[in-house]
């Protein structure tokens, strides 16, 4: 008998068998997707290894670099520390979902290109998702606040000053649009 009113997936211990999978529904970049996932699959691995959405990057896999940042229900999170099974019913936005349906770049994406806010490009999707999330959260009022709020996204190429410029450009563009 199942003691749980909600989801329950068997597994456990150092067995030779692998855990069972369970059906979840995620809305990814606006598209409702039904999937079978095992408890130990992170949202990051789900995107990259099962859905071929490789725009979200694995930099450290431990929540220490921000490369895997995606928006879950509009808020930026580290997808590497998120078990996919826990996000049943949630809306996920990845870098692939930011551009317009016609392929036009999101203002933040365009600003990153304009300001040369990246070099190797590997932290970039995470930076952009984080920046979009930050603006949505309402925490981009000054240079220092942006620097602090973006400190969860490492950039080993050291593009930070250009990232700051790009965020300000995109923020101004969205403010203007809203006005």
């Amino acid at each position: 008998m199942n003691a749980f009113s909600e989801l329950d997936v068997a597994g456990g211990g150092t067995t030779t068998a692998l855990p069972g999978k369970s059906a979840v529904t995620l809305t990814i970049n606006g598209k409702e997707t039904r999937l079978e996932v095992a408890p130990w699959t992170t949202l990051l691995d789900l995107l990259r290894e099962y859905l071929d959405l490789t725009g979200t990057k694995k930099g450290c896999d431990h929540g220490q670099c921000g490369s895997c940042t995606v928006l879950v229900d509009g808020k930026r999170v580290n997808s590497c520390l998120t078990l996919a099974i826990m996000k049943d019913g949630c809306e996920i936005t990845t870098i692939e979902g930011l551009a317009g349906p016609d392929g036009a770049l999101h203002p933040m994406q365009q600003a990153f290109v304009d300001c040369d806010a990246f070099q190797c490009g590997y932290c970039t999707p995470g930076q952009i998702c984080s920046a979009v999330g930050m603006i949505r959260e309402g925490h981009a009022h000054s240079d220092d606040e942006i620097r602090e709020q973006m400190s969860g996204n490492l950039c080993r190429c050291g593009a930070y000053p250009n990232i700051l410029d790009a965020i300000k450009q995109a923020y101004a563009a969205t403010e203007k649009q809203a006005a």
């Binding site: 959405l53 979200t56 692939e96 770049l105 365009q110 290109v113 490009g121």
Partner: peptide, 11 residues
């Protein structure tokens, strides 16, 4: 601007 920029900012 980087010619590979659009590819890098869209994933």
């Amino acid at each position: 601007s980087r010619v590979d920029g659009p590819a890098k900012v869209t994933g």
